[in-house]
Design a protein around this nucleic acid. Structure first.
Length: 307
DNA sequence: CGCATTTGACCAGCGC
DNA sequence: GCGCTGGTCAAATGCG
């Protein structure tokens, strides 16, 4: 909260470049961003090339703490997810765009309860009523004076023809809105489990209609209803959605390389020239220091990374 | 009949 | 302070 000024393009925390070994139809990207992830994605004009890989830029409004947590969570996903590539059909492996943790407005002081404590419940959300709303209390009434508290979020960019990707959980659509700067509407889903407050937003990229941006918010307090015989998306999505705030959460980035752009400085609003973003994301042939690869180095075969 | 989806309205937060 | 946009609610409708 001070030296951000010098940063020309602060929002780039991680540049994720993915190159799935599954083919052009199976590419996705993990994106580490903040609350405006979806907006950012479209606004940044993150683009991808059929034969290349998806790129994304992140932006985190939180303090370094957030980032620390982020980095910490940047472990690797269980190998199982990797091996699960098989099912799918229409749903391609999704790449988590990133943990998006952010409490609206000044609520940041409280951080994310769910993050601090990896409990399955999030009192904050429930109390706000914005999310879980017991039928007894008029939500609209409760909404007044109550701030919406964001739970940790994770966004996935997935190349898929279907909007709603199977992830092992059951979702109920509770809203749809047209979003600015995008011809595609955004759909809002909620986990059908009454005790689960996890929400999910699904929208298509304005840049590439074949890209589905799925954002999970909160963490499941239950297991999946059952995996439809594998499917990367299922495991990954489930893993992310279910372990977002788990300190021990692990993520796996198939054939993906992460580069740390600016170690910090995220105070800049989301209005950043795409060029800048591109400049950070494009020049990927840059050899990464061992430290950067460390996370992947342990799990991603060299051949995979050297594409 | 029960559950999921659709859709318009309402509310809160944020930027100007 | 006002307007805009995102997010949520809830009644209506559709489908299995």
């Amino acid at each position: 909260m001070d030296d951000d000024k010098d940063k020309p393009d602060p929002r780039t925390e991680f540049s994720a470049e993915s190159s799935w070994p599954l083919g052009a139809d199976s590419e996705s990207v993990y994106f580490f961003g903040s609350d405006r992830e979806s907006s950012i994605l479209s606004e940044f004009g993150w683009n991808l090339q059929p034969d290349e890989s998806y790129r994304s830029l992140d932006r985190i409004d939180e303090d370094d703490e957030e980032r620390s947590g982020l980095a910490g969570s940047l472990g690797m996903l269980e190998n199982s997810s990797l091996q699960q590539q098989g099912g799918g059909g229409s749903s391609e492996p999704a790449v988590p765009i990133g943990p998006i943790e952010k409490a609206r407005g000044g609520d940041t002081s409280t951080s994310n309860p769910s993050v601090s404590s990896s409990s399955s419940e999030d009192p904050a959300e429930k109390s706000t009523g914005s999310g879980g709303k017991p039928p007894e209390i008029p939500s609209k009434v409760r909404k007044k004076g109550q701030k919406r508290i964001r739970q940790p979020r994770f966004a996935f960019m997935t190349k898929s023809e279907v909007d709603h990707l199977e992830d092992g959980y059951r979702w109920r659509k509770y809203g749809q809105k047209a979003v600015k700067n995008s011809p595609f509407p955004r759909s809002y889903y909620r986990c059908t489990n009454s005790k689960c407050t996890v929400k999910k937003r699904v929208e298509r990229s304005s840049e590439d209609s074949t890209i589905v941006i799925t954002t999970y918010e909160g963490q499941h307090c239950h297991h999946t209803v059952g995996f439809p015989r594998g499917g990367v998306i299922s495991h990954e999505a489930a893993a992310f959605a279910g372990q977002l705030s788990s300190p021990a959460s692990q993520f796996y980035y198939p054939g993906m390389q992460f580069r740390r752009e600016s170690p910090l400085s995220i105070s800049q609003p989301h209005q950043v020239p795409i060029e800048a973003a591109e400049s950070h994301a494009l020049p990927r042939p840059t050899p990464q220091p061992p430290t950067d690869e460390g996370l992947l180095g342990d799990i991603v075969p060299p051949g995979m990374r050297n594409r």
